[in-house]
Write a protein that binds this DNA or RNA. Sequence first.
DNA 1: TAATCGCCTGTCAAATTTTACAGGTACCTC
DNA 2: GAGGTACCTGTAAAATTTGACAGGCGATTA
Lengths: 242, 242
Amino acid sequence: MSPVECIFQEFIDAIQTATSEDEFERVATRLAQRLGFQRFAYLRLTGETPMLISSYPKSWTSRYFQLGYQQLDPVVRRARAERALFSWGGEASTLAGNREQRRFFDEATTFGIRSGITVPIRGGFGRMAAFTLATGDRDLHPERLVADGEDLIRLVGLHFHCYVAARLDVLSASTRVASELTQRERQCLAWIARGKTIADIAVLVQIAPRTVGFHLDNARAKLGAASLPQCVAEALRRGLLS
Amino acid sequence: MSPVECIFQEFIDAIQTATSEDEFERVATRLAQRLGFQRFAYLRLTGETPMLISSYPKSWTSRYFQLGYQQLDPVVRRARAERALFSWGGEASTLAGNREQRRFFDEATTFGIRSGITVPIRGGFGRMAAFTLATGDRDLHPERLVADGEDLIRLVGLHFHCYVAARLDVLSASTRVASELTQRERQCLAWIARGKTIADIAVLVQIAPRTVGFHLDNARAKLGAASLPQCVAEALRRGLLS
DNA sequence: TAATCGCCTGTCAAATTTTACAGGTACCTC
DNA sequence: GAGGTACCTGTAAAATTTGACAGGCGATTA
């Protein structure tokens, strides 16, 4: 068995024992470095709240989200559009794209991110994710990987995604705080989550039916939900309701 | 989106709501038939105990393992050796191989398995798996698939493997609560929790609107919910949805 | 004082869900 | 062959929600 397969095997074993974001990060970091990359990043875009597990410098990732770079980032855009694994960076990136995107690449370079390989992942229900191995080298050295290393990287990305989805998402539901809803909005929504209709709630809360509707309209708008069921789901996921 | 991509997308959605061997089987069976194949099989050889999820006739699969055909089966042998997706069967198979293998193919034919496409999957050292789409037709009709259909089938195989590994193996290890909903019920409910209407879901899941309603009716009844919002809330609270 | 926010209320049409029926296939187990 | 399960489909009326308006009250704060 080739060294690369050995590394891959260790990764598969390890990922099955990870139970927290930290641990997933450590496992993937180890894999990336063993394959000759300095960094890795797993980014998932699910509606409003992106999820990132990576070994990128914190100074870079916080800046990234603060400036909404996930909209701009050519790698993310490409991952959205394509299905196959692709590599990026090197000379090509400093020339391609619009001015903003070139500046983005310049900036990333100062944080030690110059080129990499990205696995686009379709998450189902409209979600998408991308698993990236990155390096500060000017160009990728494919000889790092054996002939079918690409296949392995693809598998790594999928495994990472699947295990994060299977393990982490279940836990994170209970660890949220911020209450973005007003008390009335929460109150009405809580009743909706218990199967009451607007007319019921009007009686229970002692306000006009339309007012109940008003609060629910606001709650839906605030949580970016198209329907009450979605609104309830979002509120529960964010810990705004129990 | 092309019909094939549509089918693929539905598969990705569905597989994430599968939580048992049965449900994985159903999801893959549906995919296979929509792509014009009669059967599918996912075989994993991990040391002593092979794992099979398939829609092959039970009479065939039990015979297969009883006689240790996994040692003989040319498709499995090839899947072990190769990494790229390959197709098999048709005239070639009745002529190639030794006498035993030709008899094996004959026997398979009597169970309605004549040709197919197989995705070899490497779990690393020692571990291997194969995802197969099979048909009773003498030869494969590639026109069934669009240009990059092969790529999609590869992804299907990988996804199937990863989700079985992530969900099923983890589940059996950590004794999770039995889901009170069927896979279809969960799938429709998951879309509701994402703001889709019944009409939307009918398109997404490729079934009649009334059938979506039917599944949602059942889900509501099972969870004792008076409305969809309550149903979503209950499912989330019980960890049936994420 | 003006602006903002949470809160309250209204109308009306259009879209969507809910209820209550009735039936079908396929597969597996007993 | 009977019984069970998952799955699929239909009709049609009743109930409920959503969308798009428009307006008022009281408290806090810049």
